[in-house]
Design a protein around this nucleic acid. Structure first.
Lengths: 173, 173
DNA sequence: AAGGCCATGTAACAAGTTACATGATTAA
DNA sequence: TTAATCATGTAACTTGTTACATGGCCTT
């Protein structure tokens, strides 16, 4: 949030939340509620300060000197370890309890979602090649693209890895 | 947890937590505290039942008939959407605020950690090829391997993507 | 200017983390 | 047989989610 406020200037909670979705939503989620709570906390620590009250009792926050320092400190301590949570791997892991038919169906939905994402990244990447932007942003987009490619490859391999699921004739009723 | 209890039979909270780390820890984290809280909840719903009290007031839980049904229901509803959170991408995204030296250092630590993981997966994969196990488990391991390969490729590309970070001469003091 | 719809914010709950307490087991 | 260590469980706090409230804006 400090990083976003530093780049985008004064924003109210809702606008900040929407900006976060657009700018870092591909690799970091946060809800509006979290944003508001954190704004309170950051204001309390004087890392941000609010302008006058606007419509619907909204207030635009901007980062302070001290907040900029805090941002730099935070960046310097380095990223935390990833917390990996891939729900579909749980489903697969206990897939022995599922009808092959149904598992194939779940996987095809998964593929659809991720194909769309991959397409999105590839197109975005093309766009960036013709009209380059912030290279730091480009690097994060490239990560997304590679991740989605890995997912696609995995899906392609699954029929080989799970022959009992994919090379079984459809259930006869 | 129901899936694990179904496969591994009666376990106390601590043992269940350790089993989870081993069996699904590569793609799903849960803490011991969570396990205990959830055991209470599952017991309350009669999805699991406890044996007699053992040492240190421990109790071994096993899945009930009703719990098995709940497990199947849960698997059938399909996996939730992923919640993606990759801390290092935040660091990169706001990398303009970092000394190139320092960012390179953070990245080299990141690479070290992930190289180790990748090696782990590759070796595990080899082992599975000679002594095949549950194909559902194999499929999840393959995912991990592909993910770590994608990470490795991304790291290889970074110097090209971030020339200002990597092709700058080291800071002179 | 009334109705419906968005924008903004809040509150209650659920899930996740960290630190602690205490009862067994092991080893000197 | 005591001290150290490990296993098991609990409690307090933080973070994340869901559902709700309400005020301003737009359309008719």
């Amino acid at each position: 949030m400090l990083g976003l406020l530093a780049q985008l200037g004064p924003l109210n909670g809702n606008a900040l939340s929407r900006s976060a979705d657009v700018l870092i939503g591909d690799y970091w989620t946060l809800t509006r509620s979290q944003v508001y709570r954190e704004l309170q906390s950051l204001e309390h620590m004087t890392f941000i300060e609010a302008g006058p009250i606007g419509p619907r009792s909204s207030r635009d926050f901007s980062i302070t000197e001290k907040g900029t320092e805090a941002l730099h400190d935070w960046l310097n301590t380095g990223p935390a370890d990833e917390v990996i949570r891939v729900p579909i791997l749980l489903t697969i892991r206990f897939g022995v309890h599922l009808e092959p038919d149904h598992l194939r169906h779940l996987l095809s939905e998964f593929r659809r979602r991720h194909d769309a994402k991959r397409k999105f990244y590839v197109e975005l990447d093309d766009k960036l090649r013709t009209a380059p932007r912030d290279p730091f942003e480009t690097a994060t987009i490239r990560f997304g693209q590679l991740f989605e490619s890995a997912v696609a490859q995995w899906l392609d391999e699954l029929p080989t890895l799970l022959p009992t699921v994919f090379h079984t004739s459809p259930t006869q009723e």
